[in-house]
Amino acid sequence: MQPKVTRKSAKQLLNKASGFLQGYTHTLNPYSGCAFACSYCYVRQMPVALFHDGEWGGWVDVKENAAALLERELVKAKRKGPVTIFMSSSTDPYQPMEYAERLTRSLLEVMAAQPPDFLFVQTRSPLVTRDMDLLELLGPRVRVSMTVETDREDVRRAFTPAAPPIPARLRALRELTARGIPVQATIAPVLPCSEQFAERLAGIVDRVCIDDYFMGDGSKGKRTERIGVRSIYDALGLSDWYSRDAYARVHEQLLRYFPQERVFVSQQGFLP
């Protein structure tokens, strides 16, 4: 299903970061809404979704004046001190419409010309590799965090049928790494996976972050519980994975293939 697209003129693009992202000065969301419509997305329980017409995933607002606005806001923000940006906190900057809109790319062009002190790019889309030329210009000031919540395609299809396949995300990580762009694989949230998951990631990246609903949804798992994602686990016969123990299992697996200092847990893996 194609989402309903609305073009809007944003009044503000850089928003003050707080809570889970308190290590950043600002968050930056090129779009409102997200066509990937992941079943477990905590944004479903946030005001941006709850007070918008239509189901989450069925609408996307395009901030068509974003680049010009960011250029002005960056100048002002830099006058006040260091600027660290998390992109994005409530949407995927590389969701499908970015292929044609090129909105996120226009923002990277602004930041390549006026670099923030640090930019964290959170996505689950291989489309990020299109912008490697701009990411390279940011050098150590950027990190691309690719969500790879499982290595099982059957699990991915059950939880996030509209999201890109896992093999494509792993290929994107390889390409980014080959170009010298700082990356991490982000297992967030931990979904049912194979015993070979950590080994597969270790052959691609040297840094991983792991998170689950109970640490990462902003309400100790209560938001996720309200969404009703548990029913997907039950339907797959994998109910034991919907627990705090699931994180511990995969964390232990990661420590067999990564140095402890390269395995980050929840908030510490997202900080500048």
Rank of each mutant, 00 (worst) to 15 (best):
C193L: 10
C209R: 00
D151M: 07
S194V: 07
R200Y: 04
Q196A: 14
G216Q: 05
D154G: 08
R171L: 14
V205L: 12
A185Y: 01
V148C: 01
P192F: 13
L173C: 04
F159I: 10
F159H: 07
R200E: 15
V208G: 00
P164L: 03
L201Y: 07
D151G: 10
D211W: 05
G216H: 06
G180T: 12
A185F: 01
A172G: 13
L191S: 10
E149S: 14
F214T: 04
D206T: 01
E175L: 15
G216K: 06
F197V: 04
R207N: 11
S145T: 05
R200Q: 15
L173R: 05
P189L: 13
Q196C: 03
D212M: 08
D151L: 05
R200A: 14
L191A: 06
I166R: 05
L176Q: 05
R200S: 13
D151C: 08
L191N: 12
V190M: 05
T160L: 01
T177M: 07
D211H: 04
L191M: 10
I166M: 11
T186M: 09
F159N: 06
A172L: 06
L176I: 09
A202V: 10
R156Y: 02
V208S: 00
I210K: 00
T177N: 12
L170M: 15
P161Y: 11
M215L: 15
M215V: 02
E175N: 04
R179W: 03
A188K: 03
P164H: 04
T160G: 02
D211G: 01
I181G: 13
A185E: 02
P182A: 06
P161W: 09
D154M: 07
V208K: 00
D211C: 01
R179A: 15
Q196P: 02
I210W: 00
R207Q: 11
P164E: 07
